[in-house]
């Protein structure tokens, strides 16, 4: 297990030296970014079992605020990251405080409603660029603008952030927080009977998840230097987080990274094969994958491989006996 982690870490560190050129460098950065966002979603959806279908709202806020502080006050976009996180946490509280008293469905419905609401408002609000969106600094004024021509610096920034999120998740997973989250996911009634303050722990998961998703959005805006309502707040942003985590394996540490490692190259391929028209097909595929996962393997690929492994182990044992 430890060796597996080491191998992954080494592979990720060396990736930009092995697959060079703008296409692969950008794909690597996109992959890590997708993994960050999915890992953030996974804290809430995977570990605590509260399914958000509107996480784009946090991603979008995170993406907008840095470019907003640049546009209006010429500040370095990075300074907008904490502000974005604060706004995201406030929105998260507006959604989570009422719905976590209720059944899980209400939370899911509220997430998509708030995400749509914010998307429409942003798309019509001139202060935040309305339908056009916002631009970052065209030419970096200082290093603080974090504006690079190559994707490689972003790749390493993203890698550091991903490592930090996964380390924190791993830490929480092993402690009381992680146990309580999994108990809540498995059965709230039983969890409460054992003294788990369900609402509070769900809120913790939501706030952590919203904060990291916001950070992911900020990183996206820093790299791309441009945001508009669809690319930041669109429903497909939420869809990509969900499918990335769900394909790899919800509630597992590596699931989001695994999902991203499959989906990002897949999307790059379908887009280059079918051109712009490929996006429709990509999302048909996404819908189909989500549906099939929910129907046949809600645990994702990691659970599937675990099951296959134990089955073959049993068979081997039976043969030995």
């Amino acid at each position: 297990m430890r060796w597996g982690w080491l191998a992954i870490a080494v592979a990720l560190l060396l990736y930009p030296w092995i697959l060079t050129g703008p296409f692969y460098e950008r794909m690597g950065a996109d992959l890590l970014l997708a993994a960050i966002a999915a890992a953030a979603w996974n804290i809430l959806g995977g570990y605590a079992g509260q399914i958000s279908v509107g996480h784009a709202v946090f991603y979008g806020i995170g993406a907008y605020v840095p470019l907003l502080v640049y546009t209006h006050w010429q500040l370095p976009p990075v300074l907008g990251i904490p502000a974005g996180i604060l706004v995201s946490l406030a929105v998260a509280a507006v959604i989570g405080v009422p719905t976590f008293r209720l059944q899980g469905h209400y939370f899911s419905m509220a997430t998509i409603a708030v995400a749509e609401l914010v998307r429409i408002v942003v798309g019509n609000w001139d202060f935040v660029g309305a339908a056009i969106g916002l631009m970052g600094p065209a030419v970096p004024r200082s290093l603080l603008d974090l504006s690079f021509k190559s994707a490689v610096p972003y790749y390493y920034i993203f890698l550091a952030v991903l490592a930090a999120i996964l380390a924190l998740t791993a830490h929480l997973e092993r402690g009381r927080m992680g146990y309580y989250w999994r108990a809540i996911r498995a059965g709230e009634r039983a969890a409460r009977s054992l003294g788990v303050p369900v609402r509070r722990y769900k809120l913790w998961a939501l706030l952590l998840s919203a904060g990291f998703t916001s950070l992911a959005g900020s990183l996206y805006a820093l790299m791309v230097g441009f945001v508009d309502p669809e690319s930041a707040f669109g429903i497909l942003v939420s869809v990509e987080m969900i499918i990335t985590a769900a394909l790899g394996g919800v509630g597992t540490l590596l699931g989001p990274l695994l999902g991203a490692a499959i989906l990002v190259p897949l999307k790059a391929t379908t887009n280059s094969l079918f051109g712009g028209g490929g996006s429709g097909l990509t999302y048909i595929l996404y819908g189909g994958i989500i549906l099939l996962l929910a129907r046949f393997e809600p645990g994702g690929l990691i659970e599937l491989s675990r099951r296959i492994a134990t089955r073959s182990l049993k068979k081997a044992k039976a043969r030995a006996a």
């Binding site: 969900i242 996404y286 819908g287 994958i289 549906l291 929910a294 809600p298």
Partner: peptide, 12 residues
């Protein structure tokens, strides 16, 4: 099934 399957199935 689990909550995630319930929500993601119709969402998908």
């Amino acid at each position: 099934g689990p909550m995630i399957a319930q929500i993601l199935s119709t969402f998908g």
